[in-house]
Design a binder for these strands. Structure first.
Lengths: 199, 199
DNA sequence: ACCTGAACACCGTTCAAGT
DNA sequence: ACCTGAACACCGTTCAAGT
């Protein structure tokens, strides 16, 4: 739909053009179908041009993961800000946002949490850290409100995060019916609240 | 280490030979490094020979995922059988087994729960179902023992499953330090038990 | 600085042909 | 039935050269 319009690149924003073409391909075709040469073709440059901006295919994938975390972080921030001020409302909003993001962009989720950027991809992990940076504060708020026990460690937040990621993965992989999404996430939140409630 | 011994194949067990070579490559090099041609070379047949047993690369990946689920299911069965008879012991044993499997074979875990076999890979999902088939019974046992509430639905089990998968994914992807593994899984189990306890 | 074109080594997949 | 060898179209990556 946005292929051969007027080519506003050729000099300006090759990097961005490649990235957004890649996002689209990732969403619609999956990671295996993502080819540097094909992207170059779509964007209208030679196959060697992307090299200036991404040293290799993995660098492109890393960049996609990073922009994914940035987008997710932004959405989390917004949904928390838009929710009621109490802990439970904010938590539910954040979890809902994450799970929606994760199931709407399955291939991207997979890429973001992939094994690939294990070594040498510090930036990806930093981006992941930033996306979830408000989580500890949220836990604190819950403790201050008395919604969860003061003994609740920040690691309980990580466990909840893992749960949501896992639910999305099970659904994206087809191991669990998509219709169960809401029920499972609701249950996960309830379990978290009950499992960490005071006294 | 098992490359060029005496080649006991050439007729017999090409399929098995390819599969086990693939498992090794997957574990040591990752999915991207997995090439049909290279496997054929390792096993000592022409590059077109694998075609007889795997119609394409995806079929090989599916077969790897299936054998992964079979192995995981077997390990789960054994660890449950070897544990004390009470619900909590069995649950902890099963969760520990899953998490160990998942972190020792990161690339395989990723493949097993991947988006790839979404359409047309019924066998993979069946294998996944078999691997976790004892989970509902385990939940029932917990209810019978009064360890968890009678209202606990089987879906709580899925949530726990998702949690463990998620923890492994976070660690395998380097987003969480590997040293936190035990702490996180313990916390996940405790939260599950507290979140579903009776009364 | 940014891009091109040719070149290299490697894929997955297909197909006629061999045993 | 099972495997081979050649062929096709496609990669990622590199590098000298152009503007």
């Amino acid at each position: 739909m946005t292929e051969t319009e007027e080519r506003p690149y050729h000099h300006g924003s090759l990097r961005d053009a490649l990235l957004s073409a890649a996002e689209e391909t990732l969403r619609e075709q999956g990671q295996d179908e993502l080819s540097l040469r094909e992207l170059a073709r779509q964007v209208g440059v030679s196959h060697a041009a992307p090299r200036r901006h991404f040293r290799d295919r993995q660098a492109l994938l890393d960049a996609l993961a990073i922009s994914g975390f940035e987008r997710l972080g932004e959405q989390l921030r917004q949904s928390i800000a838009a929710a009621e001020d109490d802990f439970a409302s904010r938590l539910r909003a954040a979890v809902g946002t994450f799970v929606r993001f994760a199931t709407q962009d399955a291939a991207l989720l997979e890429l973001m949490f992939s094994t690939k950027h294990r070594e040498g991809a510090e930036p990806v992990r930093e981006a992941a850290g930033s996306a979830f940076e408000h989580l500890p504060q949220l836990i604190e708020q819950g403790q201050d409100e008395g919604a969860i026990a003061p003994s609740t460690s920040p690691q309980s937040g990580i466990v909840l995060l893992a749960t949501v990621q896992g639910i999305a993965t099970l659904i994206n992989g087809g191991m669990v019916e998509a219709g169960m999404l809401d029920e499972l996430t609701d249950r996960a939140v309830e379990q978290f609240l009950r499992g960490n409630r005071p006294d």
